[in-house]
Design a protein around this nucleic acid. Structure first.
Lengths: 205, 205
DNA sequence: CTGGTTACTTGACAGTGTCAAGTTGGAATT
DNA sequence: AATTCCAACTTGACACTGTCAAGTAACCAG
């Protein structure tokens, strides 16, 4: 019971949360270049050096923000899946829709989450949240097998496809005449040979 | 004839080229965070403010480096394609191998080229080089159609798949237990329904 | 030889992350 | 209830960054 309120202390109440919130806001309003330790501090009305105390440097803050991002990322996919019915293909498609929706509406955050630099992927919280997001996709791939690798092949297939599509769509928004703009993701799916896995043998892991 | 030597002038010979070279080196050795206007200047033995004169600010330098990246990116794919025979599927697979090879061996540069921020995609040189790289892939997709969108559907399909796979592979290198490490790209390809397009009707565009 | 333009250099400034050394408020101890 | 103590910040400094205005030196046209 102490674990819930242990952050509410001292001068400011749950500053850690406020800093993450500030960071997410800055990211949404001004992109990655607007996300700064000092600006986060100013937005949370604390001194310029307070963020470095909670998060171990800039990388720590970015990692925490990315972890938060993965949480709402998973939530978006789950919400879309709930709207779909019971048909496995419809559920898989709904997950992908959620994936692309999140990438579109939180472009800067999405870019941070999957940026090679900056993010330290040994952080346990980030690892946990990103694994949870992956599991959502993984579960929807379990009923299918693709190629010789069983449902794991489907996972990698679908994830690569939807992730690449999200990235290219994002780039295409700036440029013009990019062919990815003429293709909808739903048009790509029917060309995949998704065979039903043996019933009762859904090897999720 | 003047266009070839017009850069060799004044104190330094072809400084623009030297700065790009320096930037590529810094990127390879220390990642994106090591790539700095002032460090490029130091490596090229010029004043700290010289790069901003050639390239219009930091974004200009990053854009020029990315453009250079797209050039060797295309060259890598072309080289792989040359090693493959005449079979369209083998050629397509070779292109993808080149794609993944480049992403693996020039990870930081690859990340810069496809980073949402930093790069101004209205630059004509970058636009030209990236379009050339896309055309290499596009040509190898021309013999196939996927779904209802003809070969254009194949392009988006293959590009999304290989790009997503490259991204996920890069992330998986740091973490552990990622399922993408157990799957080879070649195992994903057979599951795609790539039908031959009508002969003589290869609509590349 | 002279004037002018190009190709940089020099110097300054605001902003950044990081770190060492304070300071302060709340809680624990006596 | 007074004192002690420590976590939660603050303050101040430093090196480094990109950007810009102003200066200077090399080359070229005449």
């Amino acid at each position: 019971m102490a674990a819930e309120i242990e952050k509410k202390r001292h001068h400011h109440g749950d500053l850690r949360e406020a800093l993450i919130e500030a960071g997410v806001g800055l990211l949404r309003e001004g992109g990655r270049s607007a996300l700064t330790l000092r600006r986060c501090a100013a937005r949370a009305a604390v001194s310029h050096s307070a963020p470095a105390h909670y998060f171990k440097g800039l990388d720590g803050l970015l990692t925490a923000i990315a972890a938060r991002g993965y949480r709402t990322f998973a939530a978006t996919m789950i919400a879309e899946r709930a709207l779909a019915g019971a048909d496995p293909k419809a559920r898989l498609m709904a997950i992908c829709d959620g994936y692309l929706m999140f990438a579109r509406e939180h472009a800067a955050l999405f870019g941070l989450m999957f940026s090679a630099d900056d993010i330290g992927f040994e952080d346990p919280e980030l690892l946990r949240e990103s694994a949870a997001a992956y599991q959502v996709l993984s579960e929807c791939c379990a009923p299918f097998r693709h190629g010789s690798a069983g449902s794991k092949g489907t996972e990698v297939m679908i994830w690569s496809l939807v992730h690449g599509f999200a990235m290219l769509s994002h780039k295409a928004r700036a440029g013009d005449g990019h062919p990815v703009k003429d293709i909808r993701f739903a048009d790509l799916m029917p060309g995949l040979t998704l065979r039903s896995a043996a019933p009762g043998k859904t090897n999720t892991k």
